[in-house]
């Protein structure tokens, strides 16, 4: 029997003045697995990670990481894990190499040993050329990669990544994904990853847990979760907008209505893909010319929608960027997406 890398039982965290950030989570991650923890802003993802990495004591419940209790055996847990937390925790006034030197020394690697380890990690994340520049001048993607490299210094068996790609441009994002996949497949590192991006969970995770309001609402492999929702949906846009009501009537015979673009109608097919031909024939019989017809495979967003009644996109709880005075974040965001030189 394989030992679990992470085992959580009825974990709860309450903050003063506020709802339960984490409200009774049970979870098990096997060794070597990549586990994606998916949920909107404020769902409790980071709070869970902080408890699992011993940075925040749980209010109640138990959690074992690498076989050690996070409350009673914190030092042993920390020795087994690496973590790259949400804000790339870097000192803007130090260079990449100096960060590496500090981190290796703190993990007890001295002199030549530490230097070699640091250099190889910097090379691995593609920062060799930028190693002697101050972190202040790094792009968002470079900071995340350095953060990841620092988390790997002591060859952890379990890696926690808290929203590793939030705010990154697509190119930096896929570079980071590739690195995480390599770690999991080549080194057998267990990865616990939180994300608010469906695509990220879909690409990276062996298994996904969906968290909302501090509770896990669904869990399984991405394929199994999607299969649970099961059937694909079909969307039709009539060539003549006046035919939209009739299009809706026709489609309604094949399943329940789901969200569609303003000019079209969509239904979840009650008997699956095989119905597509029938749909086309039915529309033809009614002499409705169709400009666009598309079959949508179920996505994790459909899973989230089915489990919570809301769509994951935009389900965040009033993140500050939606506030009226958005100027400061607008002013800083271009720096985050800047292409690396």
């Amino acid at each position: 029997m394989s030992t679990a890398a992470i085992e959580i039982h009825d974990l709860v965290r309450e903050f003063k003045k506020g709802p339960r950030a984490v409200d009774g989570i049970d979870l098990r991650v096997e060794s070597g697995e990549v586990y994606g923890f998916l949920g909107p802003n404020g769902a409790g993802k980071s709070t869970t990670v902080h408890m699992l990495t011993t940075l925040l004591p749980p209010t109640s419940g138990t959690a074992r990481v690498a076989g050690h209790d996070v409350v009673k055996e914190g030092a042993a847990v920390r020795a087994a894990i690496g973590a790259a937390l949400q804000e790339a925790a870097l000192d803007p006034f130090l260079t990449g190499r100096e960060h590496m030197k500090l981190q290796t020394a703190l993990h007890g690697m001295r002199g030549e040993d530490g230097r070699r380890r640091g250099d190889s990690l910097l090379e691995r994340v593609g920062l060799t050329d930028a190693a002697d520049r101050k972190v202040r001048g790094y792009s968002g993607g470079m900071k995340r990669r350095l953060d990841l490299a620092l988390a790997l210094v002591h060859r952890p068996r379990i890696l926690f990544l808290d929203e590793p790609t939030t705010g990154l441009d697509p190119q930096s994002r896929s570079a980071l994904w590739a690195e995480v996949q390599r770690l999991a497949s080549d080194r057998g590192v267990t990865v616990f990853l939180t994300t608010q991006y469906l695509e990220e969970a879909d690409v990276l995770a062996d298994r996904v847990g969906i968290i909302d309001h501090g509770r896990i609402v669904a869990e399984g492999t991405p394929d199994a979760l999607k299969a649970e929702i099961g059937r694909p949906s079909v969307e039709a846009i009539p060539a003549d907008p006046a035919n939209l009501p009739r299009t809706k009537e026709v489609l309604a015979r094949f399943g329940e209505a789901v969200a569609a673009s303003p000019k079209g109608a969509a239904v979840r097919l009650s008997r699956g893909e095989a119905q597509l031909a029938e749909v086309v024939r039915a529309l033809d019989a009614q002499e409705i010319a169709v400009e666009h017809l598309q079959l949508h495979a179920p996505t994790l967003d459909d899973v989230f929608l089915a489990k919570t009644g809301r769509s994951l996109e935009g389900a965040g709880d009033g993140a500050p960027e939606h506030a009226a005075e958005a100027a400061p974040s607008e002013a800083t965001s271009p720096r985050l997406v800047r292409q690396e030189a």
């Binding site: 940075l55 030092a75 920390r78 020795a79 973590a83 937390l85 790339a88 703190l106 993990h107």
Partner: peptide, 12 residues
């Protein structure tokens, strides 16, 4: 910046 949290995770 979370730098202190990072240090907390090392055997420092």
């Amino acid at each position: 910046s979370g730098f202190l949290a990072r240090l907390s995770l090392t055997p420092l």
